[in-house]
Structure formats: C-alpha cells, structure tokens
Amino acid sequence: MDHLACFTPADLQKKPPLDLNAYHWRLLAQGDSWFSTAEAKLSAHANLLQELMFSKPTAAINCAGQSDALSHMVDLESAADFVNLLSADDAPVWDGILLSVCGNDLIQAAQTPAHTADGQDVALHLRLLRRQTEWGPPSQGVARYFSEPGWQTYADYVRTNLRHLLTLRDQGPSAGKPVFMHCYAVPMPRPAGAVDASSGPWLYPALKAYALPAADWAAVSRLMVFHLAQLLKSLAADKENFPGLHVFDSTTVPLANALPGSSGVSGDWHNEIHLNHSGCFKIGRAWSEHVGAVLSKQK
C-alpha cells in the first residue's frame, strides 16, 4: 500500500512539469479545511488526504491550498484552478475527484441566529435551530429543537451545488468519472476553537445562544451530522440525477469522542470540529478502502 502523493496545481506548471503518467491513478481534490495544506493545519489537526493509501501508486492535485480552503460550496465558482482542471477542454483525464464539502455550510446554517442584528425574526426556513418558544414536545427528543423547514432549505442548497459540480465534471475530459465525498464525524460541542484563536468554537456558541440544554448538545450535533450523511447517501443512490457520485459514511468509523467541556485536544479531536492526526488516520484509512474499491473496478 502506498500513501497518496499530493501535489498542487502549481506543480503542473513547473519545468519540467509533474509527470502524472508515473501514477496508476490520478485524482483531483478540492475541499474545506480537512484538505487544507496550511502549515498550521498540517501540524495541528492534520490533512485527511495525508492518510489515504492505495494498492497502486496514486497522485492527487489538491486545489484546497494553504488557506482555510473552501468556506462554502458556492465558493467553487471562484476556485479557478479546480474548475479549470475539472472542466477545461485541455484538462487532464482524472480517474476520480475527491471532495470535502458541505461541512462548513452545515455549521453556518447551525450558527444562523433567531433574530437579525436589528431585532427582526429570522424565518424558520432560514435556520436549523428553533428558539425556546418554538420547541416541540419533549416526546420528540432532541428533534424538538431542530428546524425541518430550515433543513429543507439547506438540503436544496446541497442538491443544487452538487448537480452543478457534476455538470462541470461532465463538461470536461473526465466526464462520468467518479466523484468521491466523505460525510463528517460527529463533533462534541465544546469551547475548543483554533489554537491561535483565529476562529471557533463553532457549534458551542450557537447552541448556547439558542439556550439548548447542555445535556442535549451532543445529541443535537449527532442529529445534524446524521441528517447530512443521510442526505449525501440518498443523492449518491440517485444515479439518474447524481451519476458517478460515491459517498463514504464517516459516521460509521469508531472515533474517540472529545470530553464535554474540554477546551483543547481531546480524544480524536484537535478542536471542536477538526480531527487530530489519530482521527484523520482512522477515517482516512477507511475512506481509502471505499475509494480504492471503486477505482479498481474501472481501471
């Protein structure tokens, strides 16, 4: 088994350029901070691509870059390197596309407040959480806090953007090639932001703002992540509208949970929403098997 060899779009422009033909499988990658190559992230919560291993030499051109990478799925429109390498007439033929998307969008949806800055109500279909006067009966469990109308808005957004991405794929030389997505692990809402305090925590302040009981925070987080996993898997099963989409359910990978209330590295987590190296190792190796099995069938 060989580790995935990761390169950047700039490596294709070097003299001499990177020889992709030296690899059996050639992949194109784009995504959020789980794919970021920023030095601070590599030394802290790692990079999921680093933990992918395949039975044959495999290379990936990673467009996620050294910033926070994609903050939202719609940012694909401004990801020029990725769009060109995916859809341009002279782009390489990729054996597959690796994506790490939807997580930041889910977090932003959960962070949407119940009221605007000037005190106006935010409609229920524009947020994922309900304020206390909107909670359902206790018999609903933690679903009583969850906005189904808001979820439908989010789900429509995901469907639209994934359809657009597959259209881009089919405009270029890699038409019909498999697109691989992972789901996300279930984070423990806790006061654990980035070490340099540049961002986060993410879910913790949102759940506090909505006055959700702390005893239910972990279950609310699980509910949202499982909703996303079920959505992505249902899209992958819809071969007519989402051809070639393959989704790996990361929620099935056993991870060591972070301790409630902890503020630093805990379990398999570096901070509230990012895995540490051990967490990336566990999900990366499991996802590798899923991706490798599909690639082996086509080449």
Rank of each mutant, 00 (worst) to 15 (best):
V179K: 00
V179C: 10
V179I: 04
F180R: 00
F180G: 10
H182K: 08
H182W: 03
H182C: 08
H182R: 08
H182S: 14
C183S: 12
Y184F: 15
V186L: 09
V186W: 11
M188P: 00
P191E: 07
A192D: 11
A192T: 05
G193P: 10
V195H: 13
D196C: 08
S199E: 06
S199H: 12
S199Y: 14
S199T: 07
G200Q: 05
G200H: 09
G200D: 05
W202S: 09
L203N: 05
L203F: 07
L203D: 07
Y204P: 10
Y204G: 06
Y204V: 04
P205R: 08
P205D: 12
K208R: 15
A209P: 05
Y210F: 15
L212R: 11
L212C: 14
L212W: 14
P213I: 02
P213E: 00
A215Q: 12
A215I: 07
D216E: 15
A218N: 01
A218K: 08
A219M: 12
V220C: 15
S221P: 06
S221T: 09
R222L: 11
R222N: 14
L223Q: 13
L223M: 11
L223K: 06
M224A: 14
M224E: 15
V225P: 06
H227W: 10
H227N: 12
L228E: 13
Q230I: 04
L231H: 03
L232H: 02
K233A: 10
L235S: 02
L235K: 03
A236P: 00
A237K: 10
A237E: 14
K239P: 01
K239Y: 07
E240H: 12
E240G: 02
E240P: 00
N241I: 00
N241P: 00
N241C: 03
F242G: 01
G244K: 01
V247T: 03
V247R: 04
V247E: 01
F248N: 03
F248M: 04
S250A: 15
S250L: 08
T252W: 03
V253S: 05
P254Q: 05
A258Y: 02
A258H: 03
A258R: 00
A258G: 13
P260Q: 04
S262Q: 12
